[in-house]
Simulated scan of single mutants.
Amino acid sequence: MPPEANVTGPNVQIADVPPAASVRLEVISKRADFLRAARAKRAGQPGFLLQARNRGDDAPPRVGFTCSKKIGNAVARNRAKRRLREIARIALSAKAQTGWDYVLVGRPTETVSRPFAQLMADLERAIAKVHT
């Protein structure tokens, strides 16, 4: 389905999803990087928890996603991670700062059931909080 098409669902209505900005996000894959981000700044939101850390270099920003078994079974965890990846693609690609690591941690029931527009607003507030 092309990005300009409207996608609707029980809690989602997306129209004209903006393309990814010029900043390319890399994915965090090493456990040590997740642990370093967990010790840094946090911004709790109703839909998820954002952990962010300044690495102190000029490398591109990186993003990681985690959902524990508290979210639910594998289907619910995968759906939560897909939603987190999409809000990160839209919002972080435009607002992420170079040299930072961002980790989005899913919350039980909220990450899956919260309307997409509210998740986007949550991420924008969380980014502003960690960068102030």
Rank of each mutant, 00 (worst) to 15 (best):
A121F: 13
N6E: 10
I14V: 15
R125G: 06
A96S: 12
I71D: 12
D33K: 06
G47N: 04
E110T: 13
V27P: 06
E124Q: 02
L49Y: 03
G9S: 11
F34C: 05
P2R: 09
R24F: 10
K70C: 03
A59L: 06
L92V: 00
A80H: 09
T66V: 10
R85N: 06
L84C: 11
V17C: 15
T132N: 13
A40Y: 02
S29N: 10
A117W: 02
M120E: 05
K30Y: 06
R85C: 01
I71M: 12
A43V: 00
R53E: 08
V12Y: 04
L50K: 01
F34E: 12
D16V: 08
Q97I: 13
S113N: 15
N6S: 08
A32S: 15
L92Y: 09
T98E: 08
A38V: 09
I87L: 07
D58C: 05
V7Q: 05
A121Y: 02
P115V: 00
A52N: 01
R39P: 08
K129P: 03
S113D: 13
M1A: 12
Q97N: 13
L123Q: 00
P19K: 14
I90Q: 00
A21G: 14
E26T: 11
F48D: 14
Q51C: 04
K30T: 11
T8Q: 02
E86W: 10
R89M: 10
I87Q: 02
R31L: 13
I127V: 07
I14M: 14
P2N: 05
N11I: 10
A37N: 10
V7S: 09
A126H: 04
Q45C: 13
V7G: 04
R42L: 12
K69T: 15
R83P: 00
R79M: 04
R79L: 03
A91D: 13
P60E: 11
K95C: 05
A80R: 06
L49S: 07
V27W: 08
P115Y: 05
D33W: 08
A74W: 08
P3N: 15
Q13T: 03
G9D: 14
V105A: 00
L84G: 12
A88Q: 09
R82N: 05
P60H: 09
P19T: 12
N11Y: 09
N6F: 07
L123H: 01
S68T: 15
V63L: 10
D101G: 05
N54G: 07
A121H: 14
A88Y: 00
A74I: 02
A74E: 13
